[in-house]
Design a protein around this nucleic acid. Structure first.
Lengths: 148, 148
DNA sequence: GTACACCATAGACTGTGGTCCAGGGTCAAG
DNA sequence: CTTGACCCTGGACCACAGTCTATGGTGTAC
């Protein structure tokens, strides 16, 4: 029998046992079966699914989004899966662009800072203090967080 | 008097009143002064600071990181400020690199997905299902989460 | 002077993604 | 048959970043 207990599954996937049970509670990963004692048993499919969950998480998907992706994979709707990935890609690219903005701002400030002398001459402190010309050009309150 | 009550400040910065009080509890933003009644009063400096907090947050900085960023502006030691900014810059660059990794993984999957046909042909679903050649090249269990 | 918007505090609650603990039951080896 | 590792459930707890509620005080305009 190539079936695993929860501990073996956890070791193979590199997660904690509690995390697996948490995913089960969250409707992400059910055991293949249970022993009469109630012990969970998992097969290779469950291992792959668990690894997928971790990978998708590392890609920036929330558990909710992963739930949706997994649901899509049951429906075999390839087009919708692709669209979901595309949306996430756009999201990631926007974040990269914003961070590159910050990097430029910081790099400029650091380059302009003498590293000694009066605090009034430090462009970094000026940028932090107000919204003068030295302030990093950041998007105005982008709607990244839901404001219910 | 160009001083604002908490409600006016909230409206000008586009945040909720509770959020401002929460930031105060968190040591991020103190009122300029208080009326004898206890009412908070804020000036343009506080408004700028609040806007800075929101901007930094939108870029993925946690409140803890923002606290550190803002703490820099209190330091009289310009050299230390510059060094701290440098550390932050490295931090931002690491974030960018990690996100670029994610972007590559997603882009590869999307490019390889026909967007139609059988689910077996979809590399996104394959990446989900197993760890075949189509799986995104992600660092194994990247330390994104503290494992205390 | 009273109506009404505004503000104060303390503390409870939300959702996300887990993590830990108590108090047991089960499985396999020796 | 006992020991130790493993597993079960239910519920508490954590950090984060707010959000809401209850209860009561304040500021101002009519």
């Amino acid at each position: 029998m190539d079936s695993l207990g929860i501990g073996a599954l956890a070791r193979r996937a590199g997660v904690r046992i509690d995390t697996i049970r948490y995913y089960e509670r969250s409707g992400l990963l059910a055991p293949k079966s249970r022993l009469p004692s109630g012990y969970r048993r998992y097969g290779v499919i469950e291992l792959a699914r668990l690894r997928f969950i971790r990978r998708a998480q590392a890609l920036g998907f929330s558990l909710q989004e992963i739930r949706e992706l997994l649901a899509l994979s049951k429906g075999r709707d390839v087009a919708r899966v692709k669209r979901a990935a595309q949306v996430k890609l756009n999201d990631v690219e926007a974040r990269i662009a914003a961070l590159q903005c910050v990097r430029e701002g910081l790099a400029t400030l650091i380059a302009a800072c003498p590293g000694h002398g009066d605090a009034a001459d430090c462009p970094i402190l000026q940028a932090l203090g107000g919204d003068g010309p030295g302030a990093p050009q950041l998007p105005e309150t982008p709607e990244l967080r839901p404001q219910r």
